Simulated scan of single mutants.
Amino acid sequence: MSVVAGVRSRSIPGPVRTAVLALGAQSALALAYLLATDAGLAAPSMLAVPFIWLTAAAVAVRHAERPAVGRASRWLGRGVGILYALALAWLIGVVGPAMGGAGVDLVFLPPGWGPVVRFSGAGVAFTLVPYRAVGVLALAYLVSLAARNVLEEGLSAGVGGIVALGSCAGCALPLLGSLAGALGGAGVGLSVGGGTYLLGTAAYVLAAWLLAARPLRRYTTR
């Protein structure tokens, strides 16, 4: 009986197990968030967006190929990842110039979309949407891993990463300007921006997969 159970458990792919665990954790956190705040629910398709981003991020980071490289390449890869995170955060509006006075506030949007933390300080402002913040950090980490391949094996090893960066530009561009509508009127903004958010979500999943698996590398490093 134990042998059969062991065979069955091993037959479940690791990424699937990670996805199930990530979805379970998100569901528990979402329920606790709804019980603790007066946040409402969005349309099912929009409510799914943060779950997809966060699950894709968890699977990609957990199962990404981690090339064994020297210390110098590790630090250079980290530097590339940090620069990428800052650039992407600026592009999608996480970080930007302050437009008003200093202050901090919370906006209780639906789970995953909120709680949004908005801060405005000395010339700099940031708006932290939970799933986007995690998504940016995950992609930055994956970019740092892909950069290690480039540093150790040459530019040809980064072809898959270049394609992924193009895809990630696709995941960012549909989000430009759409967050303002969501913050201005939570339910209305999320509904009107649904098409662009779903397009950005598909591009994000593609970018995460390309950066984690780097499937083109096997054809460019022979």
Rank of each mutant, 00 (worst) to 15 (best):
V4F: 13
V4S: 10
A5Y: 01
S9Y: 07
P13W: 02
G14E: 11
P15N: 12
A22N: 06
L23S: 03
L23V: 12
Q26Y: 11
S27L: 11
A28C: 06
L34P: 04
L34K: 05
L34G: 03
L35Q: 13
T37S: 13
T37D: 10
A39P: 00
G40A: 13
L41P: 00
L41K: 00
A42G: 12
P44K: 04
M46E: 11
P50M: 08
P50N: 02
P50F: 04
F51W: 09
T55Y: 04
A56V: 09
A56M: 12
A57Q: 06
V61I: 09
H63D: 03
H63W: 15
R66Y: 00
R66M: 00
P67C: 00
S73Q: 13
S73P: 03
R74E: 01
L76A: 12
V80P: 01
G81L: 04
L83D: 01
Y84L: 01
A85I: 12
L86G: 11
L88T: 14
L88A: 15
W90T: 15
V94T: 08
A98G: 10
G100M: 11
G100P: 06
G103K: 05
G103S: 09
D105T: 12
L106N: 01
F108I: 03
P111I: 00
G112P: 00
W113G: 00
W113M: 03
G114I: 08
V116R: 07
V116T: 06
V117R: 07
V117I: 15
S120F: 03
A122M: 14
V124W: 14
A125I: 14
A125E: 13
T127V: 13
T127W: 04
V129S: 05
P130N: 09
V136L: 15
A140V: 06
Y141K: 11
S144A: 15
L151V: 00
L151M: 06
E153Y: 04
S156V: 10
A157Q: 09
V159I: 13
G161H: 08
V163S: 02
V163N: 07
S167M: 07
C168N: 13
G170M: 11
G170I: 06
C171T: 15
L173V: 15
L176H: 07
S178H: 06
L179Y: 09
A180I: 12
A180C: 07
L183H: 03
L183Q: 11
G185C: 14
A186D: 09
V188L: 15
L190V: 05
G193K: 10
L198I: 11
L199D: 00
G200D: 06
T201H: 10
Y204N: 01
V205S: 02
A207E: 03
A208K: 09
A208N: 06
L211M: 07
A212V: 04
A213I: 08
P215L: 02
L216Y: 15
R218E: 14
Y219H: 13
T221N: 12
